[in-house]
Amino acid sequence: MSAVIETEQELTGDALRILQQNLPPHKVARLLSIWHVGQGDDTQERQALFAGETVDSLFEQAMTYQTK
């Protein structure tokens, strides 16, 4: 029996999904702006993560999350 170890990219993707589920969008964006994992393209990841979002839509999501 051998252990399957995911790639760093897969692990990062899992972590981003967990963050999205548990933090409001503005905190995820802020974390991504300061998170330096030493590889990958943060700009590309942010663009994919927030595709179709606007400042207004993110604000509305933050307000909805904050009132929970």
Rank of each mutant, 00 (worst) to 15 (best):
T43F: 08
E60M: 03
K68G: 08
G38V: 07
Q66A: 13
Q20Y: 03
G52T: 00
V28D: 00
H26C: 04
S2K: 15
Q21R: 11
A51E: 06
S33R: 11
F50S: 00
L23M: 14
P25T: 00
K27I: 11
G38R: 03
W35V: 09
T12C: 06
V4F: 13
T7F: 02
T64M: 03
H36N: 15
P25N: 08
P25E: 02
E45F: 02
D42R: 10
L16A: 13
A62D: 12
L11P: 09
S57K: 00
D42E: 13
A3W: 11
Q39F: 14
H36Q: 14
L32K: 04
N22L: 10
M1E: 15
H36A: 09
F59M: 01
D14K: 15
L16M: 14
R17M: 15
T64C: 00
A48T: 10
G38S: 07
A51F: 01
A3F: 10
E60I: 00
D41P: 04
R17P: 04
G40I: 06
D56W: 07
N22S: 13
N22T: 11
D41L: 09
D42K: 05
Q66S: 14
T43D: 14
A62N: 12
A3H: 12
D42P: 03
Q66H: 15
W35C: 07
A48P: 01
M1L: 15
E45S: 05
W35P: 05
H36S: 13
V4R: 13
Q44A: 13
L31T: 08
I34R: 12
P25Q: 02
Q44G: 12
T12F: 14
T54G: 00
V55N: 09
R46V: 05
V4N: 13
P25S: 07
I18E: 07
D14P: 02
E45P: 07
A3L: 13
